[in-house]
Design a protein around this nucleic acid. Structure first.
Lengths: 110, 110
DNA sequence: ATCTTTAATCGTATTATTGCGATTAAATAG
DNA sequence: CTATTTAATCGCAATAATACGATTAAAGAT
């Protein structure tokens, strides 16, 4: 998006788009699913799970972190990542609200 | 994403990411919300609602159409867009399934 | 203190997305 | 048939995202 257009949209629209964009890459979906599956903190072995270099995975992790979906805590020489439960609840609320909006739509047209 | 890596991910991961990516722009969120709000088919006046040129809006509409979120039917000289209800239900199911996966995660860690 | 291990960051190449003016295509109106 | 209206497509410039090797930083181990 053009930076000069960012203020043309409603805050919640920017927020939703930002979130969706963070989910808009299969590697990041895979990371989230992995974190959910192991149901425990997981460190650098995320790299093993993906067909990507360490630097690239680190970049994807940062994007997920920036948008609040995951958090990482340093544990010795490695870092433990997991889904940020508190934020995740808020994010889910936001998404569900959007979904309900769309549900109301267009029962009678086209 | 590198094209050669696409087959490294599970089908549902690619699908989810594709979907999320389509939602990952405020203009496309705005379009969907507008279509939902007017609760009726709406034609080219979507362009009026957005701070974008006609060509750009048309492009965003195509992306939403490609992923199945909306459909457009020609009506005379204009085109009538609305949320594709049937697909939207399926998409919502897919997303909710993903959400439930994440919900199970990480109650006890970090 | 030096060596390892682990993950973040930097620099950079490649590719994809965004945005728009101009053009085209299709339907309708006159 | 010739305008007009509406929306898609083309071509292109600008920007952003993706990926990776190399380097750096921080913690632990020896």
């Amino acid at each position: 998006m053009k930076a000069s257009n960012a203020n043309q949209y409603a805050g919640h629209q920017l927020q939703l788009a930002r979130l969706a964009k963070a989910l808009g890459h299969p590697a990041r979906i895979a990371i989230l699913e992995h974190l959910a599956r192991v149901n425990a903190c997981v460190c650098g072995d995320i790299v093993e799970e993906l067909p990507l270099a360490q630097a690239t995975v680190s970049q994807h992790l940062r994007e997920l972190k920036e948008v609040g979906l995951i958090k990482g805590t340093v544990e010795g020489t490695s870092v433990c990542y997991c889904i940020d439960e508190e934020n995740w609840k808020a994010i889910k609320d936001q998404l569900n609200k959007f979904f309900r909006e769309l549900d109301k739509a267009c029962d009678n047209c086209c």
